[in-house]
Design a protein around this nucleic acid. Structure first.
Lengths: 156, 156
DNA sequence: CAATCCACCGAATTGAATTCGACAGATCGT
DNA sequence: ACGATCTGTCGAATTCAATTCGGTGGATTG
């Protein structure tokens, strides 16, 4: 994980579909070298995958929310169970298992606010382990495409 | 946005780097047709980009948290200002502008808990518009790679 | 100092992306 | 109902990129 690896990762976070040749040109290295580096980053697990990002409005899911959930009793079974349950729901974009006032924060995207309401009632309120929840509608969501290493980078 | 477009989007969300030929084969269509569809999805703004996903531990940022922030006075200037400020910080993965008890939820990744503490003190507490904040450390984060359309899909 | 190793490179090969003319089904106007 | 047109699909041909691999040089090791 030297500076070159770091630069490769940043470029691929911005655009994972640029050609290997173009990436190599930007970095001032040979395409074969670049290919080898990218392959190594993937094999080492630094790069975990390549994903298309979509416009949720185009998918008929313009309304997003972050749902705080408290479950009881607190224990591995209940936490694991709810986590998998939530992650499997089609409305769910991601599930955060957190420490603090709440146990989960669930990021959802739905067609409209009515369906958000229905979702809460049908999917959360009915679950016996869910003792409390409240929702925060998301007005804007800014994602940072680039995630650089913080602090010293090991050289090998 | 018919079923074929939907299937293309789902496949590219899982793996944005599979070859066009492979994608076409999975869908049972000609590579040229597939290419045309993908290009159209991109031009229409359904697919907004292609991004490499990284292992935050490999980037020396194993500690994640969701930070709730309240700012005052509430107004466009203050909201926009803090939003851009937060989004520009290297520790920040994404910024949610929310309605409800809090004004922002900021997803951060840092090397250790000490740096989380420092981050809060140096980046948030010192800002005059920040009147309150609290942090939830993230134990696990499950992301759903696939985001399918909910409800009816328009045929055009 | 010689041997070894490793990352990098460039040429050659393999294989994919892209273009484009043709075709068929749907749509529209008369 | 019919012909004209439009649109999406296809396959062959071309262009370009991914991939392989043997060679080179700089760094490391004993």
């Amino acid at each position: 994980m030297d500076e070159l690896d770091s630069a490769i990762v940043e470029h691929l976070q911005r655009d994972a579909r640029q050609t290997n040749r173009e990436l190599a040109r930007k970095l001032g290295i040979a395409p074969s070298t670049c290919l080898e580096r990218v392959r190594a980053l993937r094999n080492r697990g630094v790069i975990t995958g390549y994903h298309a990002a979509v416009d949720l409005r185009a998918l008929n899911r313009p309304v997003q929310a972050l749902l705080s959930v408290r479950v009881r009793p607190l224990g591995r079974e209940v936490i694991e169970g709810f986590k998998r349950y939530a992650a499997g729901l089609p409305e769910v974009l991601s599930v955060f298992v957190v420490a603090g006032g709440e146990d989960f924060l669930v990021h959802v995207a739905v067609p409209d606010v009515d369906q958000l309401h229905s979702f809460l009632l049908d999917r959360f309120s009915e679950r016996p382990e869910v003792v409390d929840h409240h929702s925060s509608v998301i007005h804007q969501h800014l994602s940072n495409p680039v995630t650089s290493p913080l602090g010293p980078i090991g050289t090998g």
